[in-house]
């Protein structure tokens, strides 16, 4: 970690005008970056510099900047969300870097996540997987019963909660050598499969979500475990195993 308060860094950032244009890595120099700033604040600082130079600022996704929305992406120095674990890019701080470092910043790379501009990718494939079955059909007639009236074993509730912690950021896809979305789909399948409310539609859900995942062009899981390591929410590989079980069961009975 850097000992100096302010550092000077070199950046190599992917620039791409639009979805159809060919992109390339561009080099930038940024001085006086506070090691207390977050990675996104550093990007803001770079953009201010670019605007002052009358250049096009770098487009990148961000929203809550507190690690819960899943918007910020960026493949930094060959790692999803940069060189730290259990964090999103907004939670990555410049104290992780040293004076004079060259930092590579790239968008998520996946056929199913096409680049829209610079570092912004289209993650709507995740939405379509979710829409294919990642929900519980509830009759909203006005007399819907409270979820807590159905008893749930604490251990199951905890596991479902851990799966539901997925923020759909796509780091699993970005980091997987196969561009596989199975940690995401595994988490979404698990969070319902573990609960009595979700069991009713479990068979249809897993078949439909996996079918949609395959249609989107994501790769296949080879159990490298990279997704689990890079996931900012620590979603476990157990969820992929649960999806595999659910899918096997569903395809045998359906």
């Amino acid at each position: 970690m850097a000992s100096k308060k302010n550092i000077n860094i070199n950046l190599k950032v992917w620039r791409q005008k639009n979805a159809k244009a060919a992109g390339s890595m561009e080099s930038y120099k940024l001085d006086n970056v506070s090691t207390d700033s977050s990675f996104l604040e550093m990007m803001d600082q770079l953009n201010e510099q670019l605007v002052a130079e009358k250049k096009e600022p770098i487009a990148f996704d961000h929203d809550c900047r507190e690690g819960i929305c899943g918007m910020c992406s960026m493949y930094i120095n060959g790692r999803a969300h940069g060189p730290d674990t259990g964090i999103t890019t907004c939670q990555l701080h410049m104290r992780m870097f040293n004076d004079g470092d060259t930092i590579f910043v790239e968008p998520w790379r996946s056929k199913a996540f096409p680049v829209i501009k610079d570092l912004v990718v289209d993650r709507s494939a995740f939405d379509r997987i979710q829409q294919a079955g990642g929900f519980v059909s509830v009759n909203t007639s006005g007399n819907t019963i409270d979820a807590n009236t159905i008893p749930v074993p604490k251990a199951d509730a905890d596991k479902a909660f851990e799966a539901a912690a997925c923020i759909g950021c796509g780091a699993c896809v970005a980091t997987c050598k196969n561009g596989s979305a199975m940690l995401f789909v595994g988490a979404k399948v698990s969070q319902y499969a573990l609960l009595p409310q979700g069991k009713v539609e479990a068979t249809e859900r897993v078949l439909n979500m996996v079918r949609q995942m395959d249609e989107e062009g994501f790769g296949n899981c080879t159990n490298t475990g990279a997704c689990e390591i890079e996931c900012p929410k620590g979603i476990s590989l157990e969820n992929i195993a649960r999806m595999n079980r659910e899918y096997l069961k569903a395809s045998l009975i359906k």
Binding site: K12, W14, M25, Y75, N77, G78, R79, P83, F104, E106, R109, S110, K111, A112, T175, K177, N178, G179, S180, G217, F218, G219, N220, T222, N223, T224, G225, A226, I229, E230
Partner: peptide, 29 residues
């Protein structure tokens, strides 16, 4: 599977550092 997986990432990363998150064997099956 290998062909499909290759197709799932048409553009490679300029900088990739997978040794931090997965084993050599798992990436080269």
């Amino acid at each position: 599977l290998a062909i499909q997986n290759k197709k799932a990432r048409p553009v490679a990363y300029a900088m990739n550092n997978p040794s931090g998150n997965s084993s050599f064997a798992s990436r080269n099956m």
